[in-house]
Amino acid sequence: MSRTPLRLELMAASRRLEEAGVGSPRFDADELAAHLLGVSRGRLGLHPLVGDEWVEQYHALVARRAAREPLQHILGTAVLGATTVQVGPGVFVPRPETESLLEWALAAVADTPEPLVVDLCAGSGAIALAIAQARPDARVVAVERAAGALAWARRNMELHEAAGGTPVDLRGGDIGDERLLEDLEGRVDLVTANPPYVPDGTVVDPEVGEFDPAEAVFSGADGLDTIRRLVPVIAGLLTVGGTAAVEHDDTQGESAPALFAARRVFGEVTDHTDLTGRARFLTLRRVALTPRR
């Protein structure tokens, strides 16, 4: 059996992925190699040579990625904060851009003992689980409507709990169903949401358009349909002084915050950029006693 230098395989894979239009070709090439070797990306240097069978398997993975299948689908997992969740067909893949929202959310309740947190449009459960892992004293409730995403979230919650994590209360249903969260009205310290927010008809990357569920991506002509529905829900959930963080499209840095700023129950409505410097999520604080619906 012949042996091939791993670095040559990585270089060739990176070139192929770049030619296919993948946005992070070298990173993805390294991640696929690390996955196949069963090591972290930082330990690839400990495997200078690879055999023929490995090379064949690696080429097959690279071909899948070159066809724009999401890296996370190939790996079977996605990472948010210190949390790893399982993902695949039927659920939106968490993106690195959401790291900024997660960091803000954790800082917002850093001084709140045993905070009550609600994650709306939970998808795979990544945000809810990342908060639960970082704050085991928190009570975390996650809400998801889509059956496919709900199945993935349930699986991830079970794995989290089996590993000794604090259980997350996963509720299946629509955010507009008042019965779903009526026991939490006016009591919540933090609400997070990564809703669908892309305007209908927007041209998106193949990883999104061909693999993410459309209902988790698109939301009306201006992309704000679901965010509009979140406004009264968040107003009803938050306790006075409670905070919320809602992700939005990078074209909605003014329009999304304006929906919340128009409600007198909210103050400190602020927009934030993500790791790439693009407008990405808004935050607010509940300041009035009575929501105006």
Score class of each variant (00 low, 15 high):
Cys121Gln: 12
Ala146Met: 06
Leu180Cys: 01
Leu159Met: 08
His160Asp: 00
Gly123His: 07
Val109Asn: 01
Ile127Cys: 03
Ala151Lys: 11
Leu101Gln: 13
Leu180Asn: 00
Leu181Ile: 09
Asp174Gln: 09
Arg135Thr: 07
Leu101Ser: 03
Thr112Ile: 15
Val141Arg: 00
Thr98Pro: 02
Asp137Asn: 04
Ala122Met: 05
Val140Cys: 00
Pro115Glu: 11
Gly173Pro: 07
Asp119Ser: 04
Gly172Val: 13
Arg171Phe: 05
Thr166Phe: 03
Ala147Met: 06
Pro96Lys: 12
Gly173Asn: 05
Ala126Cys: 12
Glu182Ser: 15
Pro136Tyr: 10
Glu99Ala: 14
Trp152Gln: 08
Glu158Tyr: 07
Asn156Cys: 02
Glu158Cys: 02
Pro136Ala: 12
Ala153Ser: 08
Cys121Arg: 11
Val143Ala: 00
Val141Glu: 00
Arg154Cys: 00
Leu170Asp: 01
Leu180Ser: 01
Glu99Met: 09
Ala126Tyr: 10
Thr166Gln: 13
Ala138Gln: 04
Gly125Met: 06
Arg145Phe: 11
Ala132Gly: 07
Leu181Thr: 09
Glu158Ala: 15
Val117Pro: 01
Glu178His: 12
Pro167Thr: 14
Ala126Lys: 10
Trp152Val: 09
Ala142Trp: 00
Leu120Ala: 12
Ala132Cys: 05
Thr112Asp: 03
Glu182Cys: 13
Asp111Ile: 14
Leu181Gln: 04
Asp111His: 15
Glu161Gln: 14
Glu144Arg: 07
Pro136Asn: 09
Ala149Tyr: 06
Ala153Gly: 05
Thr166Ile: 02
Arg179Ile: 00
Ala162Asp: 11
Val117Tyr: 06
Met157Glu: 03
Ala126Pro: 09
Thr166Tyr: 02
Ala149Met: 06
Ala126Glu: 10
Cys121Pro: 03
Ala132Met: 08
Ile175Val: 12
Ala126His: 06
Leu129Thr: 08
Leu102His: 12
Ala105Arg: 07
Arg145Asn: 01
Arg135Asn: 02
Val140Asn: 00
Ala153Val: 03
Leu129Tyr: 08
Leu102Thr: 13
His160Pro: 04
Ala130Leu: 10
Cys121Tyr: 14
Glu158Ile: 10
Leu170Val: 14
Val141Tyr: 03
Leu180Glu: 00
Gly176His: 04
Asp169Thr: 07
Ala134Cys: 07
Ser100Arg: 15
Ala153Phe: 06
Gly176Tyr: 04
Arg135Gly: 03
Ala130His: 10
Gly123Pro: 05
Ile131Asn: 01
Thr112Tyr: 07
Gly172Trp: 13
Ala142Phe: 07
Ala142Cys: 02
Gly165Asp: 03
Ser124Thr: 15
Leu102Asp: 06
Gly172Thr: 12
Ala149Ile: 04
Val140Arg: 00
Arg145Asp: 01
Ala132Val: 05
Asn156His: 12
Gly125Phe: 02
Arg145His: 14
Ala110Trp: 15
Pro115Ser: 14
Arg171Thr: 05
Pro115Ala: 11
Gly176Thr: 10
Asp119Lys: 09
Arg171Val: 05
Ala105Trp: 11
Ser124Tyr: 08
Glu97Val: 12
